[in-house]
C-alpha cells in the first residue's frame, strides 16, 4: 500500500515539474502550448539514450535532458514567437510540433521506433523526485517574481503597454518558453528512469492537453495553483483506478466542477500564502458564528 501511494506521489510530482514549467509559460505569458508532451518526450529519450547506450551518469543525463528540450524550445520558439503569431495560431503551431516530434521518434533508429526503449535502469526514486520538484518550484517562483517574471505578466496583460515600458516581447516570451521546455525535459528524464520503459505513444496530444488543463484549472498566473491541480489530476484518476472506466468520467467531472465553481482556476493570479490561509479560516469562523 505505501508502495502504491509512493508510486502515485512519484508520478504526480513528475507531472508537477512539467506543469510548473508550463505554468511559467502559459500562465505568465498567456500563450497556449498544445505540444508540451514533445518536450517531455525529448527529455525522456535524451536521458534514456544517454544512460542506456552510453552509460552516462544519471544526473548528467537529466541535465542534458533539460538542455536538449530547452534547445528545441529555442528552435521552435524563435521563428514562431519572432513572427508574433496570434495566440490561437501559436497554439496550432505547437500542436503540429508535438505530433511531428512523436512521428520523428517513431521513425528514428536510435529511439528504436515504435518499439520503444525497454530496460532503462530505475534511477528515479521518490527522494530524487522530491528534491528536483522542490528545486524546480523554487526556481520558477523566483523567476516569476523577478523583473523577468513581471515583464512576462506585463506582456500577457497588455503587450503594447509592455512594449511601451521597453520590454522586448519576443525575448520575454522566448525566455519563458525555454525555461518551460527545460522543465518538461527534466520531467521526461525522470519519467523514463521511473517507468524503465518509454515508447513514442506515451507522449501524445492527450498528455499535452493534460498539462495545459492542469495549468488552466490550477489558475493562470499562479505557481501553487497548478502544482495542486497536477497532483489532483494525477492522484484522483490513479486512486480511482479500481473504478476502471469510471475514472475517466470522474476526471471529466472534476474539470467541469472546476469550470463551474472556479472559472478563474483554483488560484487564478494568486498564490497560496500563510496570510491568505489565515484570512480564509478567519472568514470561515466568522461565517460559522453568524
Amino acid at each position: 500500500m505505501t508502495q502504491y501511494l509512493s508510486g502515485i506521489l512519484s508520478l504526480g510530482l513528475i507531472y508537477v515539474i512539467a506543469t510548473v514549467g508550463l505554468a511559467v509559460f502559459t500562465g505568465f505569458t498567456g500563450l497556449f502550448s498544445l505540444g508540451h508532451a514533445a518536450f517531455f518526450a525529448i527529455g525522456a529519450y535524451t536521458a534514456a539514450i544517454l544512460t542506456y547506450f552510453y552509460g552516462v551518469n544519471f544526473y548528467l543525463a537529466l541535465a542534458a535532458a533539460g538542455v536538449m528540450s530547452g534547445l528545441v524550445g529555442f528552435l521552435i520558439g524563435y521563428p514562431t514567437l519572432k513572427a508574433k503569431l496570434r495566440t490561437d495560431y501559436f497554439a496550432i503551431a505547437t500542436l503540429g510540433f508535438g505530433e511531428a516530434t512523436r512521428v520523428l521518434l517513431e521513425n528514428l533508429s536510435i529511439t528504436q521506433g515504435a518499439r520503444g526503449l525497454p530496460g532503462i535502469t530505475n534511477y528515479t526514486t521518490l527522494p530524487v523526485i522530491i528534491v528536483i520538484a522542490a528545486l524546480v518550484i523554487w526556481v520558477a517562483w523566483n523567476f516569476v517574481h523577478s523583473r523577468h517574471g513581471r515583464a512576462a505578466i506585463a506582456i500577457r496583460e497588455d503587450f503594447v503597454a509592455a512594449e511601451m515600458m521597453g520590454v522586448n516581447i519576443f525575448i520575454g516570451r522566448l525566455r519563458s518558453l525555454i525555461f518551460s521546455a527545460a522543465c518538461g525535459g527534466i520531467a521526461g528524464g525522470l519519467f523514463a528512469h521511473y517507468f524503465c520503459f518509454i515508447q513514442p505513444s506515451m507522449f501524445t496530444a492527450y498528455m499535452s492537453t493534460q498539462l495545459t488543463a492542469a495549468v488552466v484549472a490550477g489558475g493562470m498566473g499562479s505557481i501553487s495553483g497548478p502544482v495542486m491541480a497536477a497532483l489532483i489530476f494525477i492522484g484522483v484518476p490513479e486512486l480511482l483506478r479500481v473504478a476502471n472506466i469510471w475514472r475517466l468520467v470522474a476526471y471529466g467531472l472534476l474539470l467541469v466542477l472546476i469550470m463551474i465553481f472556479r472559472p478563474q482556476g483554483l488560484l487564478g493570479y494568486r498564490e497560496i500564502s500563510l496570510s491568505g490561509i489565515r484570512d480564509f479560516f478567519a472568514r470561515f469562523r466568522k461565517g460559522a458564528r453568524s
Binding site: 513581471r150 503594447v160 511601451m164 521597453g166
Partner: peptide
C-alpha cells in the same frame, strides 16, 4: 524609451493583475 521619451497611453493601460508597486517597477524596467 532609452533616449528618454515615455508615453502614458490613452485609457492608462495598466497591468491589471500586477500591484501598484509592480506597475511602477515595470516603468523602471
Amino acid at each position: 524609451l532609452g533616449r528618454g521619451i515615455c508615453l502614458v497611453p490613452e485609457r492608462r493601460r495598466l497591468y491589471a493583475n500586477l500591484t501598484v508597486r509592480e506597475n511602477l517597477l515595470m516603468g523602471a524596467y
